[in-house]
Amino acid sequence: MTDQQAEARSYLSEEMIAEFKAAFDMFDADGGGDISVKELGTVMRMLGQTPTKEELDAIIEEVDEDGSGTIDFEEFLVMMVRQ
């Protein structure tokens, strides 16, 4: 866990972390443990947004600390705390 990830967790109660985990699992449609650009786009479109591929890439790049091209749960928490 990076310093950013530990800091993000410090702002959240266990209840909030559990709620974010449920949301993360909804995004992680294939159950792979991370959110891909495609999965992020699908959920955002379900919520009425129309992000471009470039916008989706930028969202993932902003929090993808390990350079995997996807968002894992710890990175997702950082993203949610920043919102």
Score class of each variant (00 low, 15 high):
Met1Tyr: 11
Met1Glu: 09
Met1Lys: 14
Met1Leu: 07
Met1Gly: 09
Met1Ser: 05
Met1Pro: 02
Met1Ala: 10
Thr2Pro: 01
Thr2Cys: 01
Thr2Met: 11
Thr2Gly: 14
Thr2Ile: 01
Asp3Phe: 13
Asp3Gly: 10
Asp3Gln: 11
Gln4Met: 11
Gln4Pro: 03
Gln4Trp: 08
Gln4His: 02
Gln4Phe: 05
Gln5Leu: 09
Gln5Gly: 10
Ala6Gln: 09
Ala6Met: 10
Ala6Ile: 14
Ala6Val: 14
Glu7Gly: 13
Glu7Asp: 09
Glu7Trp: 12
Glu7Val: 12
Ala8Phe: 02
Ala8Gln: 06
Ala8Gly: 08
Ala8Arg: 08
Arg9His: 07
Arg9Ile: 06
Arg9Leu: 06
Arg9Phe: 10
Ser10Pro: 05
Ser10Cys: 03
Ser10His: 09
Tyr11Cys: 11
Tyr11Ser: 12
Tyr11Val: 13
Leu12Asp: 04
Leu12Lys: 04
Ser13Asp: 11
Ser13Glu: 02
Glu14Val: 07
Glu14Leu: 03
Glu15Thr: 09
Glu15Leu: 11
Glu15Ala: 07
Glu15Ile: 09
Glu15Ser: 05
Glu15Cys: 02
Met16Thr: 13
Ile17Arg: 08
Ile17Cys: 07
Ile17Glu: 04
Ile17Asp: 00
Ala18Leu: 13
Ala18Phe: 10
Ala18Glu: 12
Glu19Gln: 11
Glu19Asp: 13
Glu19Leu: 02
Glu19Ile: 02
Phe20Cys: 03
Lys21Arg: 08
Lys21Asn: 08
Ala22Met: 04
Ala22Trp: 05
Ala22Arg: 14
Ala23Glu: 03
Ala23Gly: 05
Ala23Arg: 07
Phe24Cys: 01
Phe24Arg: 00
Phe24Tyr: 03
Asp25Thr: 07
Asp25Ala: 12
Asp25Gln: 06
Asp25Leu: 04
Asp25Arg: 08
Asp25His: 09
Met26Thr: 15
Met26His: 00
Phe27Ala: 09
Phe27Ile: 11
Phe27Glu: 04
Asp28Ile: 13
Asp28His: 06
Ala29Ile: 06
Ala29Gly: 10
Asp30Glu: 11
Gly31Cys: 11
Gly32Trp: 03
Gly32Phe: 05
Gly32Met: 02
Gly33Cys: 02
Gly33His: 01
Gly33Asp: 02
Asp34Glu: 08
Asp34Met: 03
Ile35Cys: 01
Ile35Ser: 00
Ile35Lys: 00
Ile35Trp: 00
Ile35Leu: 07
Ser36Met: 10
Ser36Glu: 12
Ser36Gln: 09
Val37Asp: 03
Val37Leu: 13
Val37Arg: 04
Val37Asn: 15
Val37Ala: 06
Lys38Met: 04
Lys38Trp: 07
Lys38Ala: 10
Leu40Met: 14
Leu40Cys: 06
Leu40Arg: 00
Leu40Gln: 00
Leu40Trp: 00
Gly41Cys: 05
Gly41Ala: 12
Thr42Lys: 15
Thr42Gly: 13
Thr42Leu: 11
Thr42Tyr: 07
Thr42Met: 08
Thr42Ala: 11
Thr42Arg: 06
Val43Met: 12
Val43Thr: 02
Val43Asn: 00
Val43Asp: 00
Met44Cys: 04
Met44Arg: 00
Met44Thr: 01
Met44Ile: 05
Met44Gly: 01
Met44Asn: 00
Arg45Asp: 13
Arg45Pro: 01
Arg45Leu: 04
Arg45Lys: 09
Met46Gln: 09
Leu47Phe: 06
Leu47Ile: 13
Gly48Val: 00
Gly48Asn: 04
Gln49Pro: 04
Gln49Met: 10
Gln49Cys: 10
Gln49Leu: 09
Gln49Tyr: 11
Gln49Lys: 12
Gln49Phe: 14
Gln49Gly: 11
Thr50Arg: 15
Pro51Asn: 04
Pro51Val: 05
Pro51Trp: 07
Pro51Ser: 05
Thr52Ile: 07
Thr52Cys: 12
Thr52Val: 04
Lys53His: 03
Lys53Pro: 14
Lys53Gln: 15
Lys53Glu: 15
Glu54Cys: 12
Glu55Ile: 12
Leu56Tyr: 04
Leu56Cys: 04
Leu56Gln: 06
Leu56Gly: 01
Asp57Glu: 13
Asp57Ala: 13
Ala58Cys: 07
Ala58Gly: 06
Ala58Asn: 10
Ala58Gln: 11
Ala58Pro: 04
Ile59Tyr: 13
Ile59Leu: 10
Ile59Lys: 05
Ile60Gly: 06
Ile60Gln: 10
Ile60Asn: 04
Glu61Tyr: 10
Glu61Gln: 06
Glu62Cys: 10
Glu62His: 13
Glu62Phe: 08
Val63Arg: 07
Val63Lys: 15
Asp64Thr: 11
Asp64Val: 11
Glu65Phe: 14
Glu65Arg: 12
Glu65Ile: 15
Glu65Trp: 15
Glu65Met: 13
Asp66Tyr: 07
Gly67Cys: 07
Gly67Ser: 12
Ser68Phe: 13
Ser68Leu: 11
Ser68Asp: 11
Ser68Ala: 05
Gly69Tyr: 03
Gly69Leu: 07
Ile71Met: 11
Ile71Leu: 11
Ile71Cys: 12
Ile71Glu: 00
Ile71Asp: 00
Asp72Ser: 14
Asp72Asn: 14
Asp72Ile: 07
Asp72Leu: 10
Asp72Phe: 09
Asp72Met: 10
Asp72Gln: 14
Asp72His: 14
Phe73Ser: 00
Phe73Leu: 03
Phe73Ile: 01
Phe73Glu: 01
Glu74Cys: 04
Glu74Lys: 02
Glu75Asn: 15
Glu75Trp: 02
Glu75Met: 14
Phe76Tyr: 01
Phe76Leu: 04
Phe76Val: 01
Leu77Met: 09
Leu77Tyr: 06
Val78His: 15
Val78Arg: 15
Val78Glu: 12
Val78Met: 11
Val78Tyr: 08
Met79Thr: 13
Met79Tyr: 11
Met80Val: 08
Met80Leu: 05
Val81Gly: 10
Arg82Val: 04
Gln83Thr: 14
Gln83Phe: 12
Gln83Pro: 15
